[in-house]
């Protein structure tokens, strides 16, 4: 079970509010425990269309299409999912599509599962290689402002921007 911090409810709810304020209409995701609350808020809302994916790269392509049609979107994924997106990020980079990704980290702060480390440790570098601007956040009090600023950056400057939320914020799994 994830070590639940009371603050999780607060930041997920406030990210959802900043999605609504920021005009986010399509939210694509492959679930991660760290995104559970945000996903359920999106699913329950009539303001955003929550779209479950079979693999994260689908979301990259989908949100390019969304923007072509006038919708802003957000891609929610675990750090492992970044590895599934690399080639599709080339479309974002070549076309200068705005893309906002919210990545919950594994394989870093307090990780127990060694299989999460290779991709988690490489997440920021992989994103950087794929032309994304990276905004890590490891202080719960800065999550919402980081997301809000990243949304502006992505959609105003036509850039791929990824906010990486540390296990320090989400809480790490206690394996018992």
């Amino acid at each position: 079970m994830a070590k639940k911090k009371k603050t999780e409810v607060t930041w997920a709810d406030r990210i959802f509010d900043s999605f609504v304020h920021g005009g986010i209409r399509q939210v694509a995701y492959v679930p991660d425990a760290g995104h559970a609350r945000l996903i359920s808020l999106c699913e329950r809302s009539s303001k955003v269309r929550a779209v479950p994916l079979t693999t994260e790269e689908e979301g990259v392509a989908m949100l390019a299409g969304a923007w072509l049609g006038g919708h802003r979107g957000a891609l929610l994924m675990q750090s492992s999912g970044v590895g599934n997106c690399i080639n599709m990020f080339s479309v974002i980079q070549e076309c200068r599509f705005p893309l906002f990704s919210l990545v919950t980290m594994r394989g870093e702060f307090g990780e127990f599962n060694p299989w999460q480390v290779p991709m988690g440790d490489g997440t920021a570098r992989a994103l950087a290689n794929a032309g994304a601007l990276i905004k890590p956040v490891d202080d719960v009090s800065r999550v919402v402002e980081t997301v809000t600023a990243a949304l502006t950056l992505a959609f105003s400057t036509y850039r791929s921007v990824a906010v990486l939320i540390s296990q320090r914020v989400i809480g790490y799994k206690v394996w018992k």
Partner: peptide
């Protein structure tokens, strides 16, 4: 017409995002 010159495997999903938006 949006000509996708790369991103192999993504065309149908670009279509989905667009179809939802329009």
């Amino acid at each position: 017409n949006f000509y996708v010159w790369g991103g192999m495997g993504g065309a149908a999903m670009i279509g989905l995002g667009l179809a939802i938006a329009q």
